[in-house]
Design a protein around this nucleic acid. Structure first.
Length: 183
DNA sequence: TGCACGATGAAC
DNA sequence: TTCATCGTGCAC
């Protein structure tokens, strides 16, 4: 189980998003190591992408997205949930990949089908915004047990306000996986 | 300084 | 389809 490198994240966001499928999210908190396999993601392609928070420009909230790759962008939404992203590409590109669903692997209690639920299950909240994903307590890893997978491409969820960007198929998930939030 | 609304999830 | 619940961005 090898930790993903900085270089992995510093590439085209649609490529990183698809390659994240099947990877492991590792979170250590309170002496417990929790692990989930990524089965659904969405790519957010920078300042031009009207669905991306970074389309508002550099603000206190979007600061992490504008930062270096390989860091977590965690935000609070609808007054009750947190969502976790992985920052991609070079500093200033303001792109990221939203983790939408996990398949439980180790010490995962509660459901993980959806961005808000997976954060709750893995104890991910605002404290982890900007956290380096090459750290020991919070990172992604390669399971190195690669099997054949088929990737399904669909429009992103909940971004109908984003004009033509709403139509683009930037949501990726593992075909047939029962933990995908909205197959 | 106020206010509309959101990269959600659950209930009805 | 409605609602819980609050931070963010933008209008005033």
């Amino acid at each position: 189980m090898k930790k993903l490198s900085r270089e992995f994240y510093d590439r085209d966001t649609t490529v990183v998003a698809q390659e994240l499928l099947g990877k492991l999210l590792v979170r250590q908190a309170g002496g417990v190591e929790r692990i989930g396999r990524i089965v659904e993601v969405e790519a957010y392609l920078g300042e031009h992408d009207l669905a991306a928070h970074s389309s508002k420009g550099l603000t206190a909230r979007t600061k992490t997205m504008f930062g270096p790759p390989g860091h977590a962008y965690v935000y609070f939404i609808y007054g009750m949930y947190f969502c976790m992203n992985v920052v991609t590409e070079g500093e200033g590109h303001a792109s990221a990949v939203l983790l939408r669903a996990l398949e439980p692997v180790k010490n995962v209690a509660g459901r993980t089908q959806g961005p808000g639920l997976l954060c709750r299950a893995l104890d991910i909240d605002r404290r982890l915004n900007g956290h380096d994903l090459l750290s020991d307590d919070f990172h992604l890893a390669d399971p190195e047990t690669a099997g054949r997978i088929t990737i399904v491409k669909r429009p992103r969820i909940g971004v109908d306000y984003a004009k033509h960007w709403a139509r683009r198929r930037l949501r990726f998930y593992l075909k047939g996986n029962p933990f995908v939030s909205r197959p």
